[in-house]
Simulated assay, not measured.
Amino acid sequence: MQNGAIGIGNPPLSGHIKEKIATELARDIITTISEIEPEIRITIELEGYGFGTNHPRNPDELWEVNSATPDMQLSLEKALTDEPTKIAAGGLNRKISHIANAISKRFGNDISVVPSNEMTFLNITSKTATKQDTLRRLLDSQNTSLDNVIAFGDDVPDIDMLSACGISIAVANAVPEVKEVADYCTASNDDDGVAIVLERIIEQSHSQ
């Protein structure tokens, strides 16, 4: 769901929700971040499969890290001909809370800054983009509430959604904050934790 910025309802749900950041606002945010930390890696995500970056990767690394092909990778300037759904910043291998504070102070009325990876990475989205709200709006198409949802999460951007859903499950590699709000914990992503839970649910439904 790109931190709630884009939500697409698969049957039986319907709807296509887009919460974008205005282009000029995105430019100002990127300029501010770059002035504070010139070496920081910035990526902007667009609706669809393209993304812009100030640190282009070679084809092998691009596929391994982003599951992307070279034609999907754009320069920041070219990508900013469109309105991004998310701005991500990190790659310094240290905490960047000073950037989060500066961005929140200057642009906080229009955007949300959600840290992840122990404050070494920032997700910046429209103020109206949250996973909880986007999921709720998709569920409205079937008059279904979040109480009927099983949600999985591993990082800070998932907390609002996990807290609102009927059953919340953290994977074993989740950050401590996620495990604290989750009802249950499953195996890690690498050990197919989500699949394990879904298989058990299917098995139980067949046995009833």
Rank of each mutant, 00 (worst) to 15 (best):
P157R: 01
I96C: 03
P70A: 08
A170K: 10
R94K: 14
S207V: 05
T144K: 11
E47F: 11
S34L: 12
S116H: 01
S67N: 06
P157F: 04
G193A: 11
I150S: 02
G91M: 02
A22L: 11
T186Y: 08
A22R: 12
D60S: 04
S163T: 11
Q204D: 13
W63C: 00
I159H: 13
T32G: 07
N101Q: 14
I196P: 00
E64Q: 01
A102H: 13
G108F: 12
V114R: 02
A187H: 09
R27M: 11
D192T: 00
D154M: 05
I87K: 01
D140L: 12
P157W: 01
S34W: 02
I202Y: 09
E37H: 14
T85R: 05
N66V: 01
C185S: 15
H206S: 06
T134I: 12
S67G: 01
E35D: 15
T23L: 10
Q2R: 11
P176D: 06
D154L: 03
T32L: 11
G193C: 09
N189K: 06
I150L: 15
E45L: 10
I159Q: 10
L46A: 02
N173E: 07
G166C: 07
I40D: 05
D140T: 08
N117Y: 13
V181L: 13
I111C: 13
R27D: 03
T43A: 14
D158G: 06
T43W: 06
L25M: 10
K78F: 07
I42A: 13
A68W: 04
F107W: 11
S34K: 09
F152M: 07
P59A: 08
R106E: 14
P176H: 07
K86P: 10
D28Q: 15
V194F: 00
S34H: 09
H98E: 13
A151M: 10
A170E: 06
E24H: 07
A129I: 04
T85I: 15
T134H: 10
P115N: 07
A195N: 01
V194H: 01
D110K: 12
P70D: 05
L198D: 04
V181D: 09
V156S: 07
T69G: 00
T43N: 15
L139V: 09
E180D: 13
P115K: 06
N10M: 15
Y49T: 09
E180R: 15
V175M: 10
G4C: 09
A88I: 05
N66G: 00
T23C: 13
M119P: 00
S141P: 02
I111L: 14
A22S: 10
N117R: 10
R94D: 05
T128W: 11
E61V: 01
S14I: 03
T69L: 11
